[in-house]
Design a protein around this nucleic acid. Structure first.
Lengths: 154, 154
DNA sequence: AACGAATATTTCGACCATCGAAATAGTAAA
DNA sequence: TTTACTATTTCGATGGTCGAAATATTCGTT
């Protein structure tokens, strides 16, 4: 008799997944002397760098939902630890461009590569149709979360 | 031509989902004057109460990865806000049993019900086989996360 | 050019969540 | 009853975050 997958079960599994990935990030940060906020900041800065436009402190503050002053603290910590440097923009000297050091990139890789490999192994036996189903599930769940949040916001 | 769902896409979608649900929890907590930790504590206490065995501060500390003293602070906040009370156990008076007030239960419902309904609507058009596929995906992803964390731990 | 408004970032002072160590209260075992 | 152990709280310190003010730079208008 095949398993009956209720909505409640899916919600439970989603919650477990977020709890576990939260815990992973927590442990990783602890191992590298980085707070949750610092990890998030590194991720955002790294993503932006990959896109080719370097982050500025204020855009980072927006992305992290942090005040400007708290963002300065985050950047102080990361700079002091040697993970990035601040360059004033050549075109607009009010702005600061954030550049990651290779060391931080290595840390990011050390964070994501093992997780990515583990995921790939876990998903190895998913067929193409199944992957499309999962993608549809994830996208609709993201949209549902955004929608509920929008209702909360006034 | 059907979409090609790569591992990278799935990782990206997972990350977006955790970011969005994080943000939802953040906004909800803000609206109710509760920190992230308080929300997590309420969820743990509520889950335990549903199972029939009331939480104690030390088990809560374990569940939240918080020091004993920080847990005391959390409980002080929640008690001061009228969300729970502390009863010393009748059998072992060193222990404290945490009981939620209906008010907190209402807040929990206010948190989870709209999200649950939104999810149900989003998943309405998933067939039984597809739901089983999704459940398999989620379970294997959880296991993969736990596995990577385990490698980091020792 | 030059002045005032606007923008980007940092500094400052305060608040409070969290921590580790010590204190308090209770139980168990000898 | 004395000693060791467990559960929780209190205390002092650290540090992340905030809002407001300070600093530096650019833009728009005249």
């Amino acid at each position: 008799m095949p398993e009956d997958v209720t909505d409640e079960l899916l919600v439970l599994l989603l919650r477990q997944l977020t709890v576990e990935s939260d815990r992973f990030a927590e442990m990783f940060g602890e191992a590298h002397g980085l707070h949750r906020t610092d990890l998030n900041a590194l991720a955002v800065i790294m993503d932006a760098a990959r896109m080719g436009d370097p982050m500025s402190p204020s855009r980072l503050a927006d992305a992290l939902h942090l005040s400007a002053s708290a963002t300065t603290s985050v950047l102080d910590r990361l700079e002091r630890a040697g993970h990035l440097n601040r360059d004033r923009s050549a075109t607009d000297r009010r702005k600061v461009e954030l550049r990651m050091h290779d060391q931080a990139r290595r840390i990011g890789a050390e964070f994501f590569l093992p997780l990515g490999e583990s995921f790939s192994a876990a998903w190895r036996d998913l067929g193409e149709d199944e992957r499309r189903t999962v993608a549809r599930f994830l996208r609709s769940s993201i949209a549902a979360t955004v929608e509920v949040r929008g209702r909360l916001a006034p």
